[in-house]
Structures are given as C-alpha cells and as structure tokens.
C-alpha cells in the first residue's frame, strides 16, 4: 500500500500520485505547473490556449517541444485508422455540443473532419493551418500528460510511484493489480490485469454521455459517435501510446495495430462480449 497520496485537479479531472514518501512541496508545485503548462497549450476548453488561437484564426503556432511526440503518434494513428483517429474531431465534437461552454446541445447532422495531413501542415512542433481549425488531443493527450508528470517525478529522483489520472495509469516500481471497471456498473470489474513499469489507459463511451447516442468518442471518418465498441483498455510502455491505442481500438482491428505497436489490450462490445490479447497479463471474467 502506498504510504502517501497526493491528489489534485488538472485538465478537468482528478489526479492521484502514490509514493512511498510524501512528495516534497517543491515537487508537487512542479507537477501542478507541468499540468498547467500542458493545459495552456492544448486545452480546447480555455480561450487563452494555443489550440484556441488556431480555432479562432488560421496561421502558424509554435507548440511546446513536447508536441512532437504527441503529433507524431497522431500522424501514425491517423494513417493506420484511415482518418478515424484524428485531432480534427474537435469541430465535430463542438457541433455535437461538447464545446468549451459545455452547451451539450447538438446541432443538426454531423460535421465530417478534414483529413489531418491535408488540413494541417506540421514542422516539428510548429502547426500551420489555412482555415480556423479545432484541434482536440483527447485521444492521447491525457495519457501523454501522465508521462510528462512522471518525468517531473523522475527528475526529482523519485523512482517508485503510481500516477492515476482517472482511468489512465502509469506505474514505476512494484507490479500493480488493476481492476477493469465494468462499463455499466462501476462497482464491478470485468477483469483484472497486472502492470509493471508501464501504462494502462482506459477509454469508454458510455460515461460522458449527454444525449441519445451522444458521447465523446467520434469516428473521424464520419464525425459520428461510435457504437459497436463501448470500452477499451490498452497497456503499453508509456501513457501516450496506451491512451492513443485505447482510442484506436474503437476503430481499428487490434491485429492491425499490433503490426505497428507493442501493447496488450482488452475491449468490450455493446453485445457484452469482451476480447483480449493473448499475451495479456491478467484475466477477463467470463
């Protein structure tokens, strides 16, 4: 059991960092600062972010150096998924009501996003657009921020920790047993896995629901919410990859993703059938 837990709120969700010894204040301040820095660059929900400036008017924006890894993964997932996973679902989400005001009022029809590689040109961490563009890094951003927070801890000499960003986990040190929350019943688990020096990210379509068939996981090819797969879990070396793959599992056959990435996975269909990778360290109850 962890001796000490540090809880805080960041990017609109609850975070908990478990460590053997209490984190010094200088470290918790750095952690908060890192989360704030990320939010200021990538948040679609604040008017002073870099993302908000590109949504308001086209042009070139220099994102922080950390953007390179993030957008590199998006490039790859966009290509593999044929545009299903794309940061350009931002406008479609807004249209469905998931906007910065949380209007939660869906407009008529759907907005199909442009292709990421066509609408946006990127050189390193510089993004250039020719029309107002809503970038949403929701598919992999939170997992990536878990990695960035872990970097802060490691730089402070802390080697054993568990970071829990409400569904996205990263652990360093002892193996960790994690329950896979039942999508329809949070008091239950559909399985248990063990992770060790790696990340587990969960994604589900049935919690953040604001209307019939309206949730936050959109297929970039159609601009419409998914329906077949209702929950996914991906285990990978880092949070960026695990989070991105958890999203991609809604749209892409796991075998296809496995050609490009090392990871384990579980996913559950709306029919109540769950699938898992053969090499999963754990079990799915059946």
């Amino acid at each position: 059991m962890p001796a000490s837990s540090f809880r805080f709120t960041g990017i609109g969700t609850t975070w908990q960092i478990d460590t053997g010894d209490e984190l010094p204040e200088v470290v918790t301040a750095r952690v908060r600062g890192r989360v704030e820095e990320f939010d200021r660059a990538y948040s679609r929900f604040r008017s002073d972010s870099l993302v908000a400036s590109l949504a308001a008017e086209p042009g070139s924006v220099d994102f922080p150096p950390d953007a390179v890894d993030l957008f590199d993964l998006y490039d790859k997932l966009d290509e593999i998924s044929g545009g299903a996973v794309t940061p350009l679902v931002g406008r479609s989400l807004e249209h469905l009501g998931y906007d910065s005001q949380y209007s939660l009022t869906a407009g008529q029809g759907r907005i199909v996003p442009s292709r990421w590689t066509e609408a946006v040109s990127r050189s390193g961490s510089r993004i250039t657009t020719t029309s107002p563009t809503v970038i949403d890094v929701g598919a992999a951003g939170k997992g990536y921020l878990v990695d960035l927070v872990a970097e802060v801890l490691v730089e402070a000499g802390i080697t054993e920790f568990v970071i829990d960003a409400s569904g996205d986990l990263l652990t360093s040190g002892e193996p960790l047993r994690v329950g896979l929350e039942h999508p329809f019943d949070p008091s239950k688990a559909i399985g248990v896995v063990t992770i060790e020096n790696e990340s587990l990210c969960a994604s589900g379509s049935n919690r953040r629901v604001w209307g019939s068939g309206l949730h936050h996981i959109l297929d970039g090819r159609t601009g419409a919410p998914t329906s077949d797969i209702i929950a996914t879990w991906a285990i990978a070396a880092n949070g960026l990859l695990a989070d991105g793959l958890a999203t991609a599992l809604f749209f892409v056959q796991p075998e296809r993703l496995a050609e490009h990435f090392e990871f384990d996975w579980v996913r559950m269909r709306s029919s109540g059938i769950a699938e898992r990778s053969r090499t999963l360290r754990g079990e799915v109850f059946s």
């Binding site: 969700t13 929350e181 039942h182 329809f184 949070p186 049935n206 919690r207 796991p254 059938i273 769950a274």
Partner: peptide, 27 residues
C-alpha cells in the same frame, strides 16, 4: 489474435486490486 467471451462482472469488493481503470470519473 484475441480471445473473445461474454463478460461476467465481479464485484470490486471481492477483488484485491489496488486500482480501478475505467471511465467513471469524468471531467
């Protein structure tokens, strides 16, 4: 590549887990 089966939920109280991963906690 995968194994598919109908899911049976088990109560978290019965499972000795340190963490739970899901999407119940949203923004």
């Amino acid at each position: 590549d995968g194994i598919a089966a109908e899911v049976v939920g088990k109560s978290l109280n019965e499972l000795k887990v340190s963490k739970v991963a899901g999407s119940s906690l949203t923004s």
